[in-house]
């Protein structure tokens, strides 16, 4: 089986902080990491390879520094990795990203399965996976929590729904986005780290992929950020202090007044 995993470089923090004076994100000292959900996709690809044989290729579109994240997934056991990087790709929204990645998947060639994370923690859109599948003309499933089997050009997987889950059979080639319930990602092996250290990450630009110039980067992105602002939260609340018993009585009284609690 030839598997591609899409991994994204994201700022490595769960607590993105704002500088209250300038209203900007504090980025200093925040290292970049592999999007956490993508590590589950990498792990699942490695497990499929162990079960059914084949190869695992990682793709990332991002700045030159994202080569580090590709090296990290090589240390986990990914066979080869390509960085899609060029100023012409900058400013891409999910549509342009998905189109670009689809050309890269085609360049890898003869791919049976693409795995993505459920979403990227910086944008949280969860759109690139399904849009990539559409560009490839393949079937896709989102929120996959288990891959049951792969036989005869078909795959059976379980996807989460709002009410539970479904078992679905898909024709290959296909694309899945995975949730963290699917597995427990491994740690890098010593051998893997050695291999990662030496690995050269080839960089693909627009010519390598044969992309249409007006479908990549800023020009290929229908959505435009018009403005950004810091959300305001203040409401005129009533704060009780003092003895617990008094606070509690005061609150219940207010809720009775507001007819939330009926006596």
């Amino acid at each position: 089986m030839k598997i591609v995993v899409c991994v994204k470089q994201v700022p490595g923090t769960t607590e993105v902080k704002m500088n209250p004076e300038t209203n900007t994100l504090i980025r200093e000292g925040i290292p970049n990491v592999v999007n956490p959900f993508d590590l589950y996709a990498v792990e699942e690809a490695l497990r499929l390879k162990e079960r059914f044989g084949g190869t695992v290729t990682a793709l990332c579109m991002g700045p030159p520094s994202a080569a580090e994240q590709l090296k990290e997934v090589i240390s986990l056991g990914v066979d080869e990795a390509f960085l899609i990087s060029n100023r012409a790709f900058a400013g891409a929204d999910t549509l342009a990203t998905a189109y670009t990645l689809s050309k890269a998947v085609e360049k890898v060639g003869d791919v049976d399965l693409v795995l993505c994370g459920k979403q990227a923690i910086d944008g949280d859109t969860a759109q690139v996976g399904p849009e990539l599948a559409e560009n490839l003309g393949w079937a896709h499933l989102t929120y996959v929590r288990k891959i049951n089997d792969v036989t005869d050009g078909k795959l059976v997987a379980e996807r989460m729904t709002d009410e539970g889950y479904e078992r679905v059979e898909l024709q290959l080639p296909a694309l899945l986005t995975v949730v963290k319930e699917i597995n427990e990602p491994r740690m890098p092996s010593l051998k893997g780290m050695m291999r990662a250290k030496k690995a050269e990450i080839p960089v693909w630009g627009p010519e390598d992929l044969g992309v249409e110039a007006d479908r990549i980067g800023l020009n290929g992105s229908p959505t435009q950020v018009w403005k950004t602002f810091v959300p305001e939260h203040r409401v005129e609340g009533e704060i009780f202090t003092g003895e617990v018993s008094e606070q509690v009585k005061a609150l219940v009284q207010r809720l009775i007044e507001k007819k939330i609690v009926s006596v």
């Binding site: 549509l95 559409e134 989460m160 729904t161």
Partner: peptide, 22 residues
């Protein structure tokens, strides 16, 4: 929803338009 977040990007990509999430 789970279904909507799977359907919307697929449709947006097919008609080649923008999609804003959430």
């Amino acid at each position: 929803t789970a279904a909507g977040r799977s359907l919307a990007p697929r449709v947006a990509a097919r008609v080649r338009t923008g999609l804003t999430a959430d």
